[in-house]
């Protein structure tokens, strides 16, 4: 058994179990600590509260764009919006993989992003179709001219630039002995960078085209991604699943719904 087989056929249920345990552990703490607060809320019109909800999510983005442009471009646009979010959920190879593990995911197949701007082929070896009922070899992209941007190659490079920006920012802060920078910050960012690099290499059958190397690089890519999923509830990646949504919704509830700060 090689790393590829381990990552695809053996580990997934364990990864899901660890992830589920972590989610249950972290969310349960919030549930068990919850106490109802007897405060009379300030009455505000529902329409203003709804607009306030949208603004609660938009405000940090606007502030970032106005006051910290480098972070807005490197951290938000490159890393998040153009980088990992479409790559993780819509890259054709990922849609195929997730659909294999979780068939309803194939509903996103029409939105799949090809890995190349010039070819809809899922792999370099296409059109050799794998012997499976679920197999597909091309991304019938609905993105039209947007494929110039929405393609795995470009998005992966942008995401790598975004992660590198974040690593650089942390290093610069660490150099200035800023106290909140911790080893875990670097571990998380380096893990993400390794996943992006191995994914990019696997897509292009690099560093060599032989099957053993390919299976090793792709296997490493999937294995590292599984590590990320398994540790996600215990690391800062948790913000993506819970922290961001809980935090902003709570802020809206506290400041706008309860106190009426609109």
């Amino acid at each position: 058994m090689d790393i590829f087989e381990l990552a695809i056929y053996i580990l997934p249920p364990y990864v899901v179990a660890l992830f589920a345990f972590g989610v249950a552990y972290r969310v349960s703490r919030y549930i068990f600590m919850f106490r109802r607060v007897p405060v009379r809320r300030r009455q505000r019109p529902a329409s203003k509260l709804l607009a306030g909800l949208v603004k609660t999510f938009l405000d940090p983005l606007i502030i970032d764009a106005r006051m910290r442009k480098s972070d807005f471009i490197g951290g938000l646009i490159l890393l998040h919006i153009l980088g990992v979010i479409p790559l993780i959920f819509l890259l054709g190879q990922h849609v195929a993989m997730f659909s294999y593990w979780f068939p309803p995911y194939s509903v996103l197949r029409p939105l799949s992003i090809p890995s190349s701007a010039t070819s809809p082929a899922l792999t370099l070896t296409a059109p050799l179709k794998p012997a499976s009922e679920m197999s597909w070899t091309f991304v019938e992209s609905v993105w039209g001219p947007l494929t110039v941007i929405l393609n795995g190659d470009l998005l992966a490079v942008l995401a790598m630039l975004g992660v590198s920006y974040k690593i650089g920012d942390k290093l610069w802060r660490a150099y200035r002995r800023v106290g909140h920078v911790r080893l875990g910050d670097f571990a998380a960012l380096l893990l993400l960078l390794a996943i992006l690099v191995t994914g990019f290499l696997a897509t292009h059958h690099l560093p060599s085209g032989d099957i053993v190397t390919y299976r090793f690089v792709l296997g490493t890519h999937i294995l590292l991604a599984e590590v990320l999923v398994a540790v996600l509830p215990f690391t800062k990646f948790w913000h993506f699943v819970f922290g961001y949504w809980y935090g902003k919704l709570h802020e809206w509830y506290d400041l706008k719904y309860r106190r009426g700060a609109l």
Binding site: R29, Y30, M33, F34, R35, P60, I63, D64, M67, R68, D71, G75, K170, R173, H180, V181, R182, D185, K236, W238, H239, F242, G243, Y246, G247, H250, D254
Partner: peptide
């Protein structure tokens, strides 16, 4: 409490808070 726990554990260290 849940809110304080969120404040403590969900910071990713982006430091955007510094600007304001």
């Amino acid at each position: 409490n849940p809110v304080l726990l969120h404040f403590v554990e969900d910071c990713v260290g982006c430091a955007l808070c510094e600007v304001n």
